[in-house]
Amino acid sequence: MIIKEITIRNSSGLHARPASMWVQMASRYQSSIKIKSNNSEVDGKSILGILSLGLASGSQFELIVDGKDEQEAAESLETLVNNLENQGE
């Protein structure tokens, strides 16, 4: 199991388009992917779950990945969040 603390640095947060990009990437992996923020934990492969967290710019969350491809999944998702600003999100 991998747990990473991630901060959203892009100006608009994890709104619909970046959340959709996240779900598309997360769905490629067999591992269980969870996002925990403010005592709420959601399925990291559910766009509605992610949007329900209301993750704005500066928000921090825990990425929890568990499974046989957990390392690759965690690194890919962390990179995606860190590159949102570069993609105009």
Rank of each mutant, 00 (worst) to 15 (best):
M1T: 14
K4M: 10
E5K: 12
I8K: 02
I8D: 03
I8Y: 08
R9S: 14
N10C: 09
N10E: 05
S11G: 05
S12F: 08
S12R: 03
S12D: 05
G13V: 02
G13R: 00
G13M: 03
G13S: 02
G13W: 04
L14W: 06
L14G: 02
L14R: 07
A16M: 07
R17I: 14
P18W: 02
S20H: 12
S20G: 15
M21L: 15
V23Y: 09
Q24P: 10
M25N: 09
S27A: 10
R28P: 04
Y29G: 00
Y29R: 01
Q30L: 14
S31Q: 04
S31F: 08
I33F: 06
K34L: 07
I35V: 13
N38P: 01
S40W: 03
E41R: 07
V42N: 11
V42S: 12
D43K: 11
I47K: 00
L48M: 15
L48Y: 12
G49I: 08
I50R: 00
I50T: 08
I50D: 03
L51I: 11
S52N: 05
G54T: 12
L55H: 01
A56C: 11
A56P: 06
A56N: 15
S57N: 12
G58D: 09
G58T: 11
G58N: 10
S59C: 09
Q60H: 13
Q60N: 14
Q60I: 11
F61C: 05
F61W: 06
E62W: 08
E62M: 08
E62F: 08
I64P: 00
G67V: 05
G67A: 08
K68M: 14
K68H: 11
K68V: 14
D69I: 12
E72V: 13
E72G: 01
E72D: 12
A74N: 11
A74R: 03
E75V: 08
L77Y: 02
L77M: 05
E78F: 06
T79P: 05
T79I: 14
L80G: 02
N83S: 14
E85H: 12
E85I: 11
E85G: 11
N86S: 15
N86M: 13
Q87M: 15
G88K: 13
E89Y: 15
